[in-house]
């Protein structure tokens, strides 16, 4: 990069273009960060000072008091939300990643009659959004008394068509069939071959898909909102929707803190893994 730039002479037009491009990019970066900075700062300030000066970049000292106000209304319980969201997201992620890899393995490693139609079906249903069939799903769960239960938010994760598709695309070049063959010669069962040889090879793809599965599960609002009506089973996005109600109307410090608490885990994941996430998004786009 340094080498390249030595010989380059830029015309005034190109210079002007670069200034314009950087200005716009920096503006967009500020636009991305600004709402979250306001949230972070105001979560530590008391409501009167937020009211008199809503934009400040100086942290306040009211964090503890805001937390007390937030939890005193007997509605927003960060620990309950955190626990439920974690249970759902961790289990759903594990199921999605494991069973999608297994299904992809069935599609890549074996020759069977219905393989073609099965793969076509996966492609066809990949785009169908869950919200479109939510009424039938809700009625079904109500009938078997699974509302206010975390299972209907976890078990459907076993069938994730998009993840199967991604895993298949990754597996075809990454998994040499000779390895599978030699495991067979050594007398390993097919299931054991999958668990001990295929899974480790698929680790990078599984990690990427795990991040996206976790985030999607964590952020989900529609289906949890229709299924969960008891406070003890609320997830974080349902908790945040409670901040909309009349009870917190003017308690801005507490509202900002509540929002902060619901997005904190996602922020931690994002800043720890942003490199992989960006790479994963880029990969997802060139599916076809």
């Amino acid at each position: 990069m340094a080498k390249k730039s030595i010989g380059i002479r830029r015309t005034p037009g190109q210079k002007a273009f670069r200034v314009f491009a950087y200005v716009l990019c920096i503006f967009l970066a500020c636009l991305s960060l600004f709402p979250f900075i306001i949230m972070l700062v105001n979560a530590t300030r008391d409501t009167p000072s937020i009211q008199s000066n809503p934009i400040s970049f100086l942290f306040g000292t009211n964090l503890k008091r805001n937390f007390e106000i937030l939890t005193s209304k007997d509605m927003f319980s960060p620990w309950v939300g955190l626990k439920n969201s974690l249970i759902i997201s961790v289990c759903a992620t594990a199921l999605t990643v494991y069973f999608s890899t297994l299904t992809a393995y069935a599609l890549v490693a074996y020759e069977w009659k219905l393989k073609g139609p099965f793969f076509a079906l996966i492609l066809a249903v990949m785009m169908i959004p869950a919200t479109v069939t939510s009424i039938g799903f809700y009625q079904f769960m109500y009938r078997i008394k699974w509302t206010n239960n975390l299972l209907p938010l976890i078990l459907p994760a076993i069938a994730a068509p998009g993840t199967v598709f991604f895993m298949r695309q990754f597996m075809i070049p990454a998994l040499p069939m000779e390895i599978v063959q030699s495991a067979r010669v050594d007398g390993a069962s097919e299931f054991r071959t999958f668990n001990q040889i295929v899974l480790p090879i698929m680790k990078p793809a599984m990690a990427t898909q795990a991040i996206f599965a976790f985030v999607a599960s964590w952020n989900n609002l529609f289906i949890p909102q229709i299924l969960l009506t008891k406070k003890e089973v609320y997830t974080m996005p349902i908790m945040v929707s409670l901040l909309n109600g009349d009870i917190y109307k003017v308690e801005y410090g507490a509202i900002y803190l509540g929002i902060l608490l619901t997005v904190l885990p996602i922020f931690v994941i994002y800043f720890a893994l942003s490199k992989y996430i960006i790479a994963g998004v880029a990969l997802g786009g060139v599916k076809e």
Binding site: F99, S100, L102, T103, Y105, A106, L107, A109, Y110, E111, W112, L114, K115, F118, V125, I128, A130, V132, T133, S134, I135, G136, F137, Q139, F140, P152, L155, P156, I158, A159, P161, V164, E190, F194
Partner: peptide, 25 residues
């Protein structure tokens, strides 16, 4: 047969949690 066997969890979960609710809707 392993091709079929390893696809069973996906197919079962799909039938119960996606296809049936769609028909039900």
């Amino acid at each position: 047969k392993y091709g079929y066997l390893f696809s069973i969890p996906f197919v079962v979960a799909y039938l119960i949690f996606s296809l049936y609710p769609t028909i039900n809707t």
